[in-house]
């Protein structure tokens, strides 16, 4: 079993901020990777005891079972509004983050996320873009790619009829209230490491009271995409990244030193 033998060191182990609960996510779903990264960052920054998560509606609705921190579960799309209330009413050193899918954030919750960013709320948003509505059976989301087949766009998304996908990170980066807005991807170990650094910087933004931070994470939904998890990683790389480029869309100057420093390290 998992006991340390003489002359051995532990290189990686399950983060403390995760509970010992088996998730309900489908095999290979990168919601699990995003959870793990947030938990690792909470561990490393020592934030577990003063962090409150705000769960959304979507496959990650049960996130509150998987992290050993306090949670509130918000109605569909309303997580940034609920997080605003929680953040403003708690002592100053409390850390509040939302964890939202693309159906939640970029569709029913468009107003809430835009206004939270515009107000420069000192909260962190972890935004999972998997190009469809996972929980309800793979319907078209605002992020579904042109031509992408889903259960509600069976011949492929037709932009004439259904419009164009929303690049939420770029959109929110235009708002003066936003301090740190970036996109990363979870499709390979190198990108996962970059995603973790971004999540770290996002929480750092909040700890330092610098305002609104958001990390968009390109993610896979193998079940609704109708592919194996390994095939899904390839599909993300080939189809999502060209439309949703990885990048930093807003990094206020107070944070730029850290970003350069973390680049030098990596």
């Amino acid at each position: 079993m998992a006991t340390l033998q003489a002359n051995e060191q532990v290189v990686y182990q399950r983060p403390r901020a995760l509970t010992e609960v088996n998730t309900h996510y489908c095999p290979g779903c990168t919601h699990g990777v995003a959870h793990r990264l947030v938990a690792e960052v909470l561990d490393e920054m020592g934030l577990q005891d003063r962090t409150v998560g705000v769960a959304c509606v979507g496959c990650s609705v049960f996130a509150y079972n998987y992290f050993d921190i306090d949670w509130v579960q918000a109605p569909h799309g309303r997580a940034p509004a609920v997080a605003t209330g929680v953040k403003r009413s708690l002592p100053h050193d409390s850390i509040v983050f939302t964890y939202q899918g693309d159906g939640d954030l970029a569709s029913i919750g468009t107003a809430e996320i835009i206004h939270a960013a515009a107000r420069g709320e000192n909260i962190t948003v972890i935004y999972i873009n998997n190009a469809n509505y996972g929980m309800t059976g793979g319907q078209m989301a605002p992020t579904t790619l042109p031509g992408q087949k889903t259960t509600s766009s069976q011949t492929g998304r037709d932009v004439e009829l259904q419009g164009y996908p929303i690049r939420a990170a770029e959109l929110l980066a235009n708002l003066d209230g936003a301090s740190y807005v970036v996109r990363r991807s979870l499709h390979d170990p190198k990108n996962i490491r970059m995603a973790k650094k971004a999540i770290q910087t996002a929480f750092e933004t909040q700890v330092r009271g610098l305002g609104f931070s958001l990390v968009e994470l390109l993610s896979i939904c193998p079940t609704n995409w109708g592919m194996t998890p390994v095939e899904s990683l390839g599909w993300l790389n080939d189809h999502m990244i060209p439309y949703y480029p990885i990048g930093d869309f807003k990094v206020i100057s107070a944070l730029q030193k850290e970003t350069c420093a973390s680049k030098a390290e990596g």
Binding site: A2, L4, Q5, N7, E8, Q9, V10, V11, Y12, Q13, R14, P15, L18, N22, T23, Y25, G28, C29, T30, H31, G32, V33, H35, R36, A39, D188, P189, I192, R193
Partner: peptide, 21 residues
């Protein structure tokens, strides 16, 4: 080799990685 790349991608945090000191 205990490189832990598997643990970096595991969605379930199911892997513990050990390396010879």
């Amino acid at each position: 080799t205990g490189c832990a790349v598997c643990a970096v991608i595991c969605p379930e945090a199911a892997i513990t990685v050990y390396r010879e000191a």
